[in-house]
Nucleic acid binder design. Structure first.
Lengths: 131, 131
DNA sequence: AACACTATCACGTCGCGTGAAAGTAC
DNA sequence: GGTACTTTCACGCGACGTGATAGTGT
C-alpha cells in the first residue's frame, strides 16, 4: 500500500506553512523531501507532512531553528532501530532537557497571555467609557 | 511634589526592556523622554515608565510598531483635554477597532498556547517512556 | 584621574516575504 | 502549445543585538 507523493504546494496547503517556509526548513536541516522528481520537483510523503505539522505546533514555544533541529534529531535517534546505545543515551538526555524547557516556555506563554488579556480588557473598558 | 527623573538604564531595569529597545521605541515615535540633561542624557519620568510598561504588555499581541503608535496616539488624543471633537471621534473609532482586533489576537494566542501545550505534553510522554 | 553610565552611528541576525527568470508536468 | 506549478538566486524587512568610539556626571 503505497501512498501518493505530494508536491510542495499541496504540502503547504495541508500544513498551513508557506512554500518559502517549507524550503527554508529544508535548508536548515529540519526536513528532507522523500525524493525529487526527474525534473527536480520536491516530492513529500505523509511522513514529512506529519513532521511539518509537529514543527508548526512547536513554533509558539519560540525555539530557534537550530534548537528545533537538535530536538528533532534527538527524537529521530531515539526512534531509529539502529542507533548506538551511547547515542541513544545522549539523545534521551537532550530530549529530557528540551521537555523541561518546553514546559517552562508554556508557563511563560501563559503569563504573556495573561498580560495581553489584561491589556485587551483595559482597552475594552476605555472604549466602553466613551458611550 | 516633583518626582525624580530617571536615566535610561534605570528605566530599562524597571521595565524589563533593553536600552536599545527603549531608544528604538523613541525613534519609532512611541515615547519621548521627559527631557534631556545638559549633556544629552535621556531623562524619564514615571509617566514614561508607565507607558513603556503598557507597551510591554501589548507586545504579545503581535501588533507592528506602527500600529502600536497609532493605538497610543489615539489614546493620547482621547485623554488630552484640548482635543478637537472631530479628532476625539476619530480616535474613539480607531481605538474601538484596535480593541476588537486585540480581542481576536488574544483568542489566537490562546489557541497557540493550546498547541504548544499539546506539544510539550507529547514530549514529556515520549521522555517518560524511556525509563 | 578614574569609573560607571550614556550618546550616536552602523553593521549583523533571524525567519521568513517577495519578486525575477527559467525550467517542469503526480 | 498553453497553463499551472515549481526551481534557484537574491534582495528586503521588522525588531532589535552588538560592538566601536566618544562624550557625560541624577
Amino acid at each position: 500500500m503505497t501512498t501518493r507523493l505530494l508536491q510542495i504546494g499541496e504540502v503547504a496547503e495541508q500544513t498551513g506553512l508557506s512554500l518559502r517556509t517549507v524550503r527554508y526548513y529544508e535548508q536548515m536541516g529540519l526536513i528532507t523531501p522523500e525524493r525529487r522528481s526527474d525534473g527536480g520537483f520536491r516530492l513529500y510523503s505523509s511522513v514529512q507532512v506529519t513532521r511539518l505539522r509537529l514543527i508548526k505546533r512547536m513554533k509558539p514555544l519560540g525555539f530557534h531553528i537550530d534548537q528545533m533541529r537538535e530536538l528533532l534529531e534527538a527524537r529521530d535517534t531515539l526512534h531509529a532501530v539502529d542507533s548506538a546505545p551511547a547515542a541513544r543515551d545522549a539523545a534521551a538526555h537532550l530530549l529530557a532537557e528540551y521537555a523541561q524547557s518546553a514546559n517552562q516556555r508554556v508557563r511563560d506563554l501563559r503569563e504573556q497571555l495573561t498580560h495581553a488579556q489584561d491589556f485587551s480588557d483595559q482597552l475594552a473598558r476605555e472604549v466602553a467609557t466613551l458611550t
